[in-house]
């Protein structure tokens, strides 16, 4: 019961904060709204039985990625930008597209098969780690490191001042 109330409270928070991300005029406001979304999603992961993902979400997203966003917003002094929403003529088109998207993905999700909750679920850190480092994910895991290095090299090369 308490779990249900908590879930809906978090869901409403996440959803309204997501709206704020899109509607905020200043990039900094968007960033803080996004942090709220990330934290409530992390709590929802906890409710869904994955404490490790809940914490990793905070470590990687709220702790690192959003700090990077804040840094860039401060670095470029985005407050000077006037760019708000797009031209008015775009709005109906975008909403139409979003509506179609909701319909389509919604159809898939509603039609999706949810297994009844009889099966025991072990979302503990150990179970997670066992699966992550099993043979099935070896290549993905190693590819991740290549991805990270590529991103690092790319970011360094792009951001350094050309001389």
């Amino acid at each position: 019961m308490a779990e249900t109330i908590l879930f809906y409270a978090l869901a409403i928070t996440a959803f309204s904060a997501a709206f704020a991300v899109v509607l905020q005029k200043s990039a900094l406001g968007s960033a803080f709204a996004l942090i709220v979304v990330l934290c409530s999603l992390s709590a929802i992961y906890g409710l869904l039985g994955s404490p490790i993902l809940a914490t990793l979400q905070i470590v990687i997203y709220a702790g690192a990625v959003m700090v990077l966003f804040l840094f860039v917003i401060m670095l470029l002094d985005v407050r000077r930008e006037k760019g708000g929403g797009g031209p008015r003529s775009f709005v109906p088109l975008a909403l139409l597209f979003a509506g179609l998207l909701v319909l389509q993905v919604g159809a898939v999700l509603v039609g999706s098969e949810l297994v009844p909750q009889s099966a025991p679920f072990d979302g503990s850190a150990k179970a997670f780690a066992r699966r992550l480092f099993s043979q099935d994910y070896v290549y993905v895991f190693e590819a991740t490191s290549v991805l990270i290095v590529a991103a690092l090299a790319g970011a360094l090369a792009l951001a350094r001042r050309r001389r």
Binding site: V59, I60, G63, A64, V65, V67, L68, F71, V72, L75, T144, I148, V149, A151, L152, A155, L156, A159, R160
Partner: peptide, 14 residues
């Protein structure tokens, strides 16, 4: 500061 933050992110993932 941006560069050091990027390096931090990638090792955070590590």
């Amino acid at each position: 500061f941006y560069l050091v933050c990027v390096i931090f992110i990638l090792f955070d993932v590590d």
